[in-house]
Simulated assay, not measured.
Amino acid sequence: MAQLNDFVHAPHVNERPDIFRAPSSAEDLVSLYSAFLARENALAFIADSPERPVGYVTATIHKRPGDALMRPRSFVFVEHIAVAPTMARTGVGTALVESIRVAGKEAGCTSLLTDVWDFNKRALAFFEAAGLVHMRHWLEQPL
């Protein structure tokens, strides 16, 4: 996962350096992903080719109790997805998302969610093609 992170993270650093930073070392990424994978609600799948990993997806399972205003709900949230540029448009990303769908259903989730930064048009198009629809908008104003 650490090896595949750079090409998907670099556009975020370029577009929003006020929020994202380049990792200082591969060890930092290994620590980050190790801590993520240790979480009870974490999911991760890696797509391999005979030579090397070519993609990954991470997600978290969320179970929210209901209250006076909201119904109880459970969903799986895609945190990160990366596919090697040489494998783009080959079905790897779609297979990774499908793995999360299946795992989410097995965990009792009723929906799949993710978020996409507004500048990331490719990711937005990918998730729309995968069947996700807009449900909420975040707005920002620098202070």
Rank of each mutant, 00 (worst) to 15 (best):
H62F: 09
S74L: 04
F36E: 05
D48R: 14
F36V: 09
P50L: 06
P50H: 04
A44L: 06
A44I: 09
L32G: 05
R39L: 07
A44W: 08
A38R: 13
D48E: 15
R73V: 06
L29E: 10
A47M: 08
G66V: 00
A59N: 06
V30D: 07
F45D: 03
A38H: 05
T60R: 13
Y33G: 03
G66F: 02
G55V: 04
R64L: 11
S34P: 00
E40V: 14
L43E: 13
F45G: 05
A47H: 05
E51W: 04
P50C: 01
L29N: 02
S31Y: 00
R73P: 01
F75Q: 08
S34D: 15
P50G: 06
G55N: 06
F75Y: 14
D48N: 15
P65H: 06
R71T: 09
M70K: 07
A68N: 01
L29G: 00
P50I: 07
R39F: 01
N41K: 13
T58H: 10
S49L: 09
V30H: 03
V57F: 01
F75K: 00
M70E: 07
L43F: 14
A42F: 07
L32Y: 06
L32W: 02
P65N: 11
G66W: 02
T58R: 06
R64Q: 12
R39A: 11
A42R: 10
L32A: 02
V30F: 00
S34A: 13
R71K: 14
Y56E: 02
I46T: 15
N41Y: 08
S74V: 04
A59K: 09
F36K: 13
S31E: 10
A35C: 04
K63E: 13
L32K: 01
V54D: 03
A68E: 01
F36I: 09
S74R: 09
M70N: 11
N41D: 15
E40Y: 07
G66N: 02
G55P: 07
S34R: 12
F45H: 09
S74W: 03
V54K: 08
D28F: 03
D48L: 15
V76P: 10
E40L: 12
S31L: 07
L37M: 11
N41H: 13
K63A: 09
A35D: 13
S25M: 05
Y33N: 02
P65L: 09
L43R: 15
S49V: 12
M70H: 10
D28H: 09
A59Y: 09
E51A: 15
H62A: 05
A26T: 14
L32H: 05
A44G: 11
R39W: 02
S31P: 00
T60S: 14
A59I: 08
L43T: 08
R64I: 07
A35M: 12
A44T: 14
D48Q: 15
D67P: 08
F45Y: 11
E27F: 00
D67W: 04
A68D: 04
A44P: 06
Y56K: 05
F45L: 06
